[in-house]
Each structure stands twice: as C-alpha cells, then as structure tokens.
C-alpha cells in the first residue's frame, strides 16, 4: 500500500489517497471487532449444531437437540393444560352450583371468562355483555332459551340459527312483508307491545291499545305468551322486561314486526372446548348475579 502522511491528532498514518479532500487513516481494526466477530460466529456455529439449520437439498440438518417449533408448542400446550388440571378437572366434573359456591374456582372463572368472552363474544354482545343493536343483552335481559345453566350451555354449543346440525332455530315472522297483518294492525300491536315495557313510554290511546292487545293475542301470543313474557321453547323474547334485542323505539319495534327477525348466534362447538364453554356459562351467570 502507498504510504501517506501522519495524522497529527490521532498519530495514525493515512492511506495516501485523497478524494476531493477526504483522506482515510490506516488505523488497524480495533481488537474488539475481531473478538465480537469470533464470539457471534461461535455462538452461531453452536446454535447451528443444536437446532435445525442448514438445507441439504431435499432435507435439512435437524440439530442435535432434535427441537422443532411445532413439537415445542404442542408440548407447551400439553404442559399448560396439565398445570391447569387441578382446577379444570373440578370445573369439568362438578355441578354448576358447586362451582359457583366455590370462591376460588369462581376467581378463575372470572379471570378466564373475561378473556374468553372478550376474544369471542364481545364483538356481538359487547365487552360488558350488555348487547347492542341486534344482539341480546346477556347481563340483564330475560333469557331467550331459559336461564338454566344447561340451556345456556346448549345455546353456546349449537348456536341459534347457525350452521350446526343441532342448532336452535327461531324466527320472528315478517307480519308486514308477508302480508299477514295490514299496516294499521301492526301499528296497533306495536303500540301495545311497547306499552308492556316498564320504560314508561307515553301510553297510547286506550282504544288503540285494546285493539293492539287483540291483535297480539291472535298472532303473537303463540310464541311470546299471552302476557308477552316470551317463551323459551321457541326462543321468543320477553317483550315486557324493557330490554330489547333490536331496539325499543317505535321504529325498531315496527321493523321487527313488519319484516321479522332471525338473529344468528354462531355455534362454538369445534372452536371452544367444552371446558371453555362451561366457564362462559359460569361467567355469564356470575356476571348477572353481581350486576344485580
């Protein structure tokens, strides 16, 4: 190499070249650079020996430890499920009442249920299970299919109007669109239905209400019951509890009666384990008892 001049500040020689005023010092490579190159290379070689690393054409080196990420996660999952076995076995085996009476188990149910519900159900039923337009309030309203833990468990397993072979099926007929009732009759029954709620809607004219009641008894009572308190056999909602799936405004109720409704609750069998589903039932029941 050409010999340059000595740089006064550092005492090192330059390489003797200059590019538009830029020079370079011929400073030797600092020792730590070689050290860290060697250290990281050594680390890599060891890692390559232990883990799957180099392709060999139609296969690859599997590594001395025989580790594979899929196997690893499977083992982790299995171990985690074993870790949980102390309480999962009890939740799977014991009755709903027994579990609800056990504060320790219920702490776990609350924690787990929060996340399970948040990741799977909250999209429709809301983070606090309070429902939303089209989706029932699970924290307060009367149960569509009955409030027994078993009924709720079944709903979650098979869904409502879902693709599951055992799905629960329910449908509110379209009285207006299918010309079962004319517009005036619908307006009457809507007024009547709205008057059943405790929300204190300004009561309509007594004549209208009486007419509406008549329409109701003839057309609706078969599903919603004479008092309008719903029927858990058909999943027909309670129309007197002040909680509405599709909204309680004149408009919304009219729409429900005119065009019908058929909500779809997905089936969770296949996506959530029986244990998860049972915990969700417990979580919902618990939510309700602590809300009130």
């Amino acid at each position: 190499m050409a010999v340059g001049e000595r740089d006064a500040h550092t005492g090192h020689m330059t390489t003797g070249h200059e590019w538009n005023g830029i020079k370079e010092l011929n400073t030797p490579v600092p020792k730590p650079v070689y050290f860290f190159l060697a250290a990281t290379a050594l680390f890599s070689v060891v890692y390559w020996l232990l883990m799957p690393a180099w392709p060999t054409g139609s296969s690859y080196t599997k590594g001395l430890l025989g580790i594979d990420q899929r196997q690893t996660v499977a083992e982790k999952l299995a171990a985690a499920s074993l870790d949980r076995a102390s309480w999962t076995a009890r939740i799977a085996g014991e009755s709903f009442e027994a579990i609800r009476a056990d504060p320790q188990l219920m702490t776990i149910v609350r924690e787990t249920g929060h996340t399970l519900f948040g990741d799977n159900c909250a999209a429709c039923h809301g983070a606090k299970a309070a429902g939303g337009p089209g989706y029932p309030n699970l924290a307060e309203a009367s149960w569509l299919w009955g409030g027994s833990p078993e009924a709720i468990e079944e709903t979650i397993r098979v869904g409502i109007n879902s693709a599951h072979p055992d799905t629960r099926v329910s449908q509110m007929p379209a009285f207006g669109r299918d010309q079962i009732l004319d517009r005036d009759r619908i307006l009457e029954v809507v007024a009547y239905v709205r008057s059943l709620s405790p929300s204190g809607e300004p009561a309509a004219d007594a004549g209208v209400l009486a007419a509406g009641r008549q329409v109701f008894l003839e057309n609706c009572a078969s599903c919603h019951g004479e008092s309008g308190a719903g029927n858990t056999e058909f999943g027909a909602p309670d129309l007197t509890d002040g909680s509405w799936i599709h909204g309680g405004s004149l408009d919304a109720v009219f729409r429900a009666v005119y065009g019908g409704q058929q909500g779809l609750m997905p089936a969770w069998e296949g996506r959530l384990s029986p244990l998860d589903r049972k915990m969700l039932v417990l979580y919902l029941l618990d939510l309700r008892s602590t809300e009130n």
Binding site: C124, L264, M265
Partner: peptide
C-alpha cells in the same frame, strides 16, 4: 366465527358494534 350480518355491520361501521 361471526355471522355475515355482524361482518357487514362491522365493516360498515366498526364502532357501532
């Protein structure tokens, strides 16, 4: 995982659901 109805409502206005 969700119903068509939910997907449609969510895409039209995510914050509504």
């Amino acid at each position: 995982k969700y119903s068509d109805q939910w997907q449609v409502a969510h895409l039209i206005d995510p914050r509504a659901v």
